[in-house]
Amino acid sequence: MIGAPIQGRSPARMAWDRIKKDRTAKISAITVAFIFLLALASPIFTWILHTTPDQFHPETLDPSFGTNPVGKLGGISAQHWFGVEPRTGRDVFLRFAYGARTSLSIALSATALATLIGVLVGLVSGFFGKTVDLVLTRTMEIILAFPSILFALAVTPVLENLLESWGVPTGNATRIPVMIVVLSMFGWPYIARIVRGQVISLREKEFVEAARSIGASRTHLVFKEILPNLWAPILVTVALNIPTMITSEAALTFLGAGVIDPTSDWGAMLLASVPFYSVDPMYTFIPGFGLFILVLAFNLLGDSVRDALDPRSSR
């Protein structure tokens, strides 16, 4: 039988091929890429529109009712593509674009930090076992049992006051790092648990035994033998963790423990829009829809990545 020559394909290549055939993956990847691009390119729009996300535009508001933008759908016009903010006339499109920056950088930094902690703890816990494992597993369970958003709400002002008492100025320069720390504090156990489980099954595998028998150090065993076999589950967890972080960040900000005005942020935009939902529904719709699309796209993308890497798992 004549056919294409048989090629050896690496697991990564196989996964990539699977993703390329997945239409959902493509659409969601494009959506995510588009929002990233919007976030990265936001300064360009400042230049195109000749204004900044913080610039007030009193001329765009009804002079007798500062809560009402002039024009339809929250003041959408050639100059203000998504309309303007009630009371200030700040450009909603620019705030949306810059808000994507804030929301994404916080969510991604928190995910990165959580992944770093989670992988390290998972490796240590799974590899060493015994008391170390017991202590670390219990810690994870305790953290997972906490209602994270409520706890984050309570912890943020405490951390902030503590920093303030050390002379750190309050404001977004402290708020944002505090948020990243708090979000990752509650995010790492999810990753650590998965890594730990994988490590436990891997550490008894033949190739690890072989390395051990020729006298490889523990560091070598953990980082050179085990870790390279973990990238697939880590990637899947990270992909599914990002949307959770985005929602948590928006929720924290919405509840008042997050990013402070005038810095743009989607959660902050939603919070600011609440009083106006009946007079200017567009202002609530835009950040809400943005969040919805981004989280949905990330979730679908994460699912696709998981399917591609581990085709046996069912949807």
């Binding site: 508001l61 009804d62 500062g66 009371r87 200030t88």
Partner: peptide, 15 residues
Amino acid sequence: VDFKSILLAAGGTSA
């Protein structure tokens, strides 16, 4: 002092 944008922030001339 921009009287106009300050009053708009508070709700405009009806406020």
